[in-house]
Design a binder for these strands. Sequence first.
DNA 1: AAACGATATGTAAGCGGTTCCACAGAATTT
DNA 2: AAATTCTGTGGAACCGCTTACATATCGTTT
Lengths: 343, 343
Amino acid sequence: MTIQDIANLTGVSTATVSRAINKTGYVKEETRRRIFEVIDKHKYVPNAVARSLSINDTSCVGVIIPDIENEFFSKVMSGIAEVAEENGYHILFLGSNESLKREHSFLNIVEAQRLAGVIITPVSEEDVFTKDRLLRFKQRGMSVVLVDRDVPGSNIDGVFSDNVTAARDGVSKLIEAGHTKIATISGPETSKPGKERLLGYIQAMEGAGLYIPPQYVTHGDFRKQRAFECAKSLLSLNEPPTAIFTSNNLTTLGCLEYLTSNKMKIGRDISILGFDDIEALKAINYKLSVIDRDMNQIGREAMRLLLKNLNKRHVKNRERESIVLPCTLILRGAKKMRLKGRS
Amino acid sequence: MTIQDIANLTGVSTATVSRAINKTGYVKEETRRRIFEVIDKHKYVPNAVARSLSINDTSCVGVIIPDIENEFFSKVMSGIAEVAEENGYHILFLGSNESLKREHSFLNIVEAQRLAGVIITPVSEEDVFTKDRLLRFKQRGMSVVLVDRDVPGSNIDGVFSDNVTAARDGVSKLIEAGHTKIATISGPETSKPGKERLLGYIQAMEGAGLYIPPQYVTHGDFRKQRAFECAKSLLSLNEPPTAIFTSNNLTTLGCLEYLTSNKMKIGRDISILGFDDIEALKAINYKLSVIDRDMNQIGREAMRLLLKNLNKRHVKNRERESIVLPCTLILRGAKKMRLKGRS
DNA sequence: AAACGATATGTAAGCGGTTCCACAGAATTT
DNA sequence: AAATTCTGTGGAACCGCTTACATATCGTTT
């Protein structure tokens, strides 16, 4: 069944059928009725591929994210999908799995499929292939939006979080609660979130005049396994920390895994401040404080930004539009820590 | 940049360029080299939309799932994506959010976009619109695969879990551990998982000669809120259960939320057996036993099944191919329950 | 040397839509 | 009544690619 068949069966031209279907141009009411009778009778559904080719517009955007199993990304995805659907856009899902090779291959797909835009959390902030591609996309009028991670020097729009402030305020709370021996399991320092959250931690500590022993800054990679080992090394120190700031949700889990497997009780034996809340732990009111973000909102804003800049060619020297969303501190830690050594 | 431009610049016909690009048919090595020089120089990327139209094949499958934020689905998605990528297929992500309206609209998209197939966990097992569409898809040679939920009487292939056995064995373990007062928060009884898990529970109880007070069977909807209320009603009974079988991950969380907010300690004050493991709780070795499934595998199998039946027209009376994967029981409950009233 | 298969390339007709343009009749304005 | 605008419709080019078919050249085989 093609538009030609429908035209023949109705006794009109394809032009008229097309106009009837798309409500563009004049079609006599009577003709229109007959056309739709035929369409319904034969359950005709116009070929969107042909249409895309013809009008040169696939109402489709690509979403390249590193790990859909991560609660953060699945929620972001959800937000993206919501706004996309409201606006008649479809989503091509591309899970890079933190693999550069895959990311590159996906960028090719985005280009080949002539997608209207792409939302991406790049695997690496320093990869030149990805950067070049994204810039080329913009030059060609595609809409490109970064999420969470940046591509330095690219001036590409994006939705980010106020990592520094959040981390600083969060760690400050730990200090207010009496902690002085606060360690961190940081993220990759080549990535915006990793860098900024570490910076916030440092600012809070230095702001309070607290010394940071070098061993207190362990270097994770935003994954569980590595965080587990970082936690282990922290707890093996002569002077182990009384609180740990973990810089993303998986880091938190890895850290918790080590601590609980060593029979430590969070909120009593040690305090944890995590970045990004975790549904399950929220449900059981686990004594874990977190810096929370509205992940759905991040997705929604990203999609909105994408839609807003559709078809806007890259203008030279245009200010990048970067949306920085705030975080909130959720204190679920147990009792405040007893202050030692004071009256 | 089109294939025509490349042809002109190289001084050959589009046919030759096409053959060079797709490695189909003869092209002299020298010509081939020149063509690719031009392609590289101008960063030409063939238009996949035009190609799809021409060869009548979008290497793209639709995935319609109700809730990507649910750990189960995000892992299934991950598995699907993995196999899709290995085979050069793309994924159109369609999140129905448990809304029939959206699901229907997505089915239209699948049809209009001429996708090669669709993997779907339908919102309702009784919706006739969806059923009709899926059957039509099959008749037209599209590959259709169900995941987890069924469409009765449709004979559509699918990947399911051995819910009855798993639930029966799981609940039996609770009984072996000494529990006699075991309640359940079931899922929608119109859905395969809801129905079967409840059946498994009943079989285990009856098999052990245990009476099931009607109030012990509460009816959830696989969501948190409702489960919270079910838990509340169970704990308000004169004779509250000593163990609860929760029939999916969100049900478990809702139940836990109620219990923990009432200061009950899981594994001591009450035992929980959940269906589907929860990453975060696994990490902290929470005293919660679960029936676990390899969710990634479910996704992988679904995609494999889809690929296998690509282009195979619906054969009348063909046996449906339904893959039923086993579950495993993970006992993380605390100590065995003290047996009461016996020597 | 003729015949043949392999190699190399071009022409042009699709794929299934959209849309510009032309044209005709109806309705309205002057 | 003529001029003008509005309605309604069809013809055909076009979107960018693939491919059947035709044709030409070349190296082999007989």
